[in-house]
Design a protein around this nucleic acid. Structure first.
Length: 304
DNA sequence: GCGTCCAGGTCTACC
DNA sequence: GGTAGACCTGGACGC
């Protein structure tokens, strides 16, 4: 199945690829030679799908395949997933207008930056975020890789991220001994069981039905999600005022502005206070600017 | 080899 | 509300 989706003129698929580390965590995959981002997901009826996306001018060409035949109703569901993952309906015009007023941030609209890649489900985002805490990025990749490999349903080409039900069916010892998630293991089990039972509906994070405060309360009520993880997850759900300080970004800030000397978080936050509800996102973009600039494949001019 | 440190933190007990 | 200590893994580093 092939779909064509229209995107706003300021949309850059490649900007999404470098927006954070998600694009290199499975089931995401990046093909630089084809300038293609691909991932796996599961439809509501359990059908696993493999999705590959390329941008051509103001359109996205989306190739979808599955080992099972598609139901007639699959089209809209697939569009919903692709739209949510690729942030197609995220309006960044206000952010870009604000950034244009500051010479040091004019690169943001120039690169079409500001949209942040998400997983197909808020559950997948939350599990992955727990796997980023208190460890190196290579360990995050290893834990997520083992989760997908051991519990994910095959799409033919790869495996989708396990569902809450899949993860809830495994005991804590599985996460300790097989996934090697260490002390995070009971957190992962509890999160999966709460989501699978319906006690916790993380997908509400993606709707406008909850206030940012309610979303934060929901996230902080999950064991294993502290200030860092909650702020990062809130950013994936449109709360761009949160700073998500961690050792990596505060070090990056120290090197950029203070010759490597660490400064208090409130000092950092002062620098971005003029950016209103986008202050946390501007902080993130400011620190990750080298990711955009060093990427030789980053195409400002999308294919004609 | 082996021990130590630390990396994109969080929880709990205690004050 | 603030803080110290424990917690898993695995790579880097020094010896």
């Amino acid at each position: 199945m092939t779909l064509t989706l229209s995107v706003p003129p300021d949309y850059r698929l490649w900007s999404l690829v470098v927006s954070h580390g998600w694009s290199v965590l499975p089931p995401f995959r990046v093909d630089r030679s084809r300038r293609e981002l691909s991932f796996a997901a599961s439809l509501d009826d359990g059908t696993p799908i493999d999705v590959a996306v390329r941008q051509t001018a103001d359109r996205l060409r989306v190739r979808v395949s599955s080992p099972r035949p598609f139901a007639r109703t699959s089209g809209p569901a697939i569009r919903r997933i692709v739209t949510a993952v690729l942030r197609i309906d995220e309006d960044v015009s206000e952010l870009h207008r604000m950034a244009r007023r500051h010479p040091e941030y004019r690169w943001v609209p120039r690169y079409g930056a500001g949209r942040i890649l998400r997983a197909p489900t808020a559950f997948e985002d939350a599990v992955k975020m727990i796997c980023t805490t208190n460890c190196s990025w290579s360990l995050t990749e290893a834990m997520v890789g083992r989760l997908v490999e051991r519990l994910g349903v095959s799409t033919g080409d790869r495996r989708a991220f396990p569902t809450a039900k899949d993860m809830a069916s495994k005991p804590e010892s599985f996460y300790r001994n097989v996934i090697k998630a260490g002390y995070r293991s009971p957190f992962l089990v509890e999160l999966a069981r709460r989501c699978a039972s319906g006690d916790l509906d993380l997908e509400q994070l993606r709707s406008d039905s909850l206030t940012p405060e309610a979303k934060e309360a929901m996230l902080r009520g999950i064991k294993g999600i502290g200030p860092y993880a909650a702020d990062n997850l809130l950013r994936l759900h449109g709360a761009y005022h949160r700073f998500a300080h961690d050792s990596w970004i505060t070090k990056a800030y120290a090197e950029r502005y203070h010759r490597g000397r660490r400064v208090a978080n409130r000092t950092i936050e002062r620098r971005y206070r003029g950016f209103g509800r986008f202050r946390g996102l501007l902080y993130w973009l400011d620190m990750t600017r080298p990711w955009y600039e060093r990427d030789e494949d980053f195409g400002m001019e999308v294919e004609a």
